[in-house]
Design a protein around this nucleic acid. Structure first.
Lengths: 349, 349
DNA sequence: ATGAAAGCGCTAACAG
DNA sequence: CTGTTAGCGCTTTCAT
């Protein structure tokens, strides 16, 4: 095996490995791709050759023929053009929500050798970019997290025939797979808990009405409360950010000073609500019980939040699983997976 | 122009566009890549042909010949194998720090048509994965954010000859470009402010000693205080998480009940310190002034934190800029960019 | 069980 | 200024 090798210029290619192993490119390709029907001794020789040459397959070349990239787009999609002052990126990534989704996606994809490509889509232009990125074959499919229900991106993706999976049910039904939480059931859990703990004057701070999940949490809560004999539940609308929770709580207490329990549509706003309650001198949970939603890092406040747990990492992993299924089998049926939430009881209620 | 086109099967290729436009592939390639020396009328025809065919260049094919991918790896690298209970992904992405870096990177790269591929490296295996990913030519370079100073990944990258830029100076000097903050100067800003506002008994809660940035903030603070005539500054070590800030503050107050000012090495711990102070019945800033570090979202607490601003997004963008320079010119000199922090005065001090 | 050969879609000399 | 011609490195029939 001490053959004198012709000088390998630059990074070694299949050809180089083949020459060193004394076989053909095809054979090397076979052992690399784990295709059987290769004599053990030859496999051995090839592996040695790979080691001595330090060969690594070139992804572009492979991709060109297999039509697979081993990458998926992880796109965070906003409704339209910037609303607030800060750029879209800042607002998106500052939200712990995104981190948990990324975490779940990476956790699932990494062991499978697939890599997520981070993309932001917050304008017609950037949405087009996402579509062409996929059409160019830069990624095999897309995982889409929309911050608004009316996001046009999902439809663009469907029209382009790109495999894609959504976080949450789209506002308008379109034939696309998605993973979502049973928001109404989660809200009902909160209602049951508040009632069970003896609250008689219960109110709620909802998320923005243009987000389907917020609507579901609100109506699910109202319905459950109605079932408990409370047909009317004071409600104010927030925007899922802490400040709106604080303002909402102040408003609620001003209009209904006797409130003794409140369901806040996410932990961030609940944190704000806690601040407001403290300013008003109300003790939590003695005077007012507070239940949040999500079980995010924000739940670790004072007092620790009782909240409805949304298993984001698991849901994100499920999205990735579905996407891979669609990529592997273009005929895979459009599927929706609905995950059940659980109540996490801490100190705030 | 109403020529009858042969049926286009599947996605259109350069060849198809060329046929429709009545020119050669090379010409189409030229107009797509914006190379001059193409007659305006022909450019026109080509553009029309592109539009009618709905052509999008295939990235793999292009990549194969240009040896560029238009992607960079954005890797978050831990020291070794998991420490705490939670998986590495969760800990990483839960940290708002990462989000801000991602935000800065995406903001810079997106307009340039480059996409970041998210990678995690927390074990020998995954570090190898990152290196082969790069060697495979799956990305043109790497942006590395290490959570520990002794991270072995940077060296692996340098040895592999991969263009890479680091967040923060590596513990051991290696020939690699990085972007960092002037931590000592930032800590000095905090010291100056505390002294200027009249604090006489000042202490500090530092970050973990194995993180170079934490060391710099600590020694920078001590040095500045010494310059103000306070050679001894009580210090306790935290781990950059809120709980450690709370515990550290309790310890500090127990051992030195007369403390009237404290510099906490990051906002997350400062938030914890605020909680401790509240539990102890100390008013902030009247009894104890608190200065944080980072100016992260955590600074928006009660009372709002006076803190040393670290412009993470700008620093991340700078990393991307450096990386692109290295990719474009392999001879580009190893460079380090040190960014100056600024004090943001709010209510806590 | 292995090799030969034909591309995948594109860019980049090199001619003309 | 435009067309012709080689490949880039790999997988995959099709023979053998």
């Amino acid at each position: 095996m001490t053959s004198d090798l012709p000088p390998l210029s630059g990074t070694p290619t299949l050809e180089d490995v083949a020459r060193v192993a004394g076989v053909s490119r095809a054979t090397v390709s076979r052992v690399i791709n784990g295709i059987r029907n290769v004599a053990p001794e030859i496999q051995e020789a090839v592996h040695r050759a790979i080691a001595t040459t330090g060969y690594v397959p070139n992804r572009a070349a492979r991709s060109l023929v297999t039509r697979r990239t081993g990458a998926v787009a992880l796109v965070v999609s906003g409704a339209g053009d910037a609303k607030g002052g800060e750029p879209f990126e800042s607002r998106v990534f500052a939200d712990p929500f995104f981190g948990r989704v990324a975490s779940g996606v990476v956790g699932f994809l990494r062991p499978r050798g697939i890599h997520p490509v981070l993309m932001l889509a917050d304008s017609a232009q950037t949405r087009e970019d996402v579509v062409s990125f996929l059409r160019q074959g830069s990624a095999d499919g897309a995982l889409v997290v929309s911050t608004h229900g009316e996001d046009p991106l999902p439809k663009l993706l469907v029209d382009a025939g790109v495999p894609a999976v959504l976080w949450a049910r789209p506002a308008r039904p379109i034939p696309i797979s998605y993973v979502d939480l049973a928001h109404r059931a989660g809200a009902a859990l909160a209602a049951d808990h508040l009632v069970a703990r003896g609250c008689r004057r219960v109110a709620t701070i909802s998320g923005p009405f243009d987000v389907p999940a917020a609507q579901d949490r609100l109506s699910g809560f109202q319905e459950a409360m109605a079932g408990h004999g409370h047909p009317y539940v004071p409600a104010v609308e927030g925007d899922f950010m802490p400040a709106s929770g604080e303002a909402g709580m102040h408003r609620l207490m001003k209009e209904h000073p006797d409130i003794d329990g409140v369901f806040v549509a996410n932990d961030l706003m609940a944190q704000g609500a806690l601040l407001a309650l403290r300013d008003l001198g109300r003790r939590v949970p003695e005077d007012v019980a507070v239940v949040g939603f999500d079980d995010s890092a924000a739940a670790a406040c004072r007092p620790p939040l009782t909240t409805v747990r949304q298993p984001m990492e698991d849901m994100a992993a499920e999205m990735a699983r579905l996407l891979l299924a669609h990529v592997a089998d273009p005929g895979f049926r459009v599927t929706s997976v609905i995950v059940q939430p659980a109540l996490v009881v801490r100190e705030s209620a």
